[in-house]
Simulated scan of single mutants.
Amino acid sequence: MPKFRFETTEFDQTTTFEEELASPDLASPRAIEKAHAALVAGAPTGLDQSGSVTRVYDEAGYLVATVNFSDVVLDSSQQQPISDAPTEEPGVMRSG
């Protein structure tokens, strides 16, 4: 299975972890899931996570997904997490 690197940046601090996924199509939903979990974990402490972003890179270092804070917050009209696909085109950016 391919390995993907998840990089979450918040407050100018980056945390990284790697995970094997069956396909690149699972990278964005997994990043949304992780970002949502981080949002829930930070909620009781009152931390402002509005600037957080999670990027997912494939084994070659190409960007395959980007999840911003706004992708995981509750929309008051829908009352469920927003999970639209990232606006950046996959494979355009390469991790350095």
Results as ranks from 00 to 15, higher is better:
Val73Leu: 08
Pro24Cys: 01
Gln49Arg: 13
Tyr62Ser: 14
Asp48Glu: 03
Asp25Ala: 12
Lys34Gln: 11
Ala38Trp: 07
Glu89His: 05
Arg5Phe: 00
Pro81Met: 10
Thr54Ser: 08
Glu19Pro: 03
Ile82Phe: 08
Glu10Gln: 13
His36Gln: 08
Val64Ser: 10
Phe4Pro: 04
Glu19Tyr: 07
Gly96Ile: 11
Ser23Gln: 12
Pro86Cys: 11
Met1Gln: 07
His36Trp: 10
Phe17Gly: 03
Val92Glu: 05
Ala41Trp: 01
Glu88Leu: 08
Thr66Asp: 00
Ala35Ile: 04
Asp75Thr: 07
Gly42Asp: 14
Ile82Met: 12
Lys34Pro: 09
Phe69Ala: 11
Met1Asp: 07
Asn68Val: 05
Ala85Val: 10
Val53Arg: 05
Lys34Arg: 09
Gln78Thr: 15
Ala38Arg: 13
Thr87Leu: 13
Gly91Phe: 00
Ser76Glu: 12
Leu74Asn: 03
Gln49Leu: 14
Thr8Tyr: 02
Leu39Asn: 02
Pro24Ser: 00
Gln13Ile: 12
Leu47Lys: 15
Phe17Arg: 07
His36Arg: 14
Asp84Val: 13
Leu39Tyr: 09
Ala41Met: 06
Gln79Tyr: 15
Ile82His: 13
Asp75Trp: 10
Ile32Lys: 15
Thr15Cys: 04
Ser23Phe: 08
Asp75Ile: 12
Ser76Gln: 08
Pro29His: 00
Pro2Phe: 01
Thr45Glu: 14
Gly42Tyr: 11
Phe69Lys: 09
Leu26Gln: 05
Leu39Glu: 06
Val73Asn: 02
Ser95Glu: 12
Phe17Ile: 05
Leu63Val: 02
Pro90Phe: 03
Pro90Asn: 03
Phe69Glu: 11
Glu88Gly: 08
Ala37Gly: 09
Gly96Tyr: 09
Pro44Gly: 02
Val72Ile: 07
Ile32Asn: 11
Gln78Lys: 14
Met93Ala: 13
Ile32Pro: 01
Phe69Pro: 02
Thr66Tyr: 03
Glu20Ala: 10
Val67Pro: 01
Met1Trp: 06
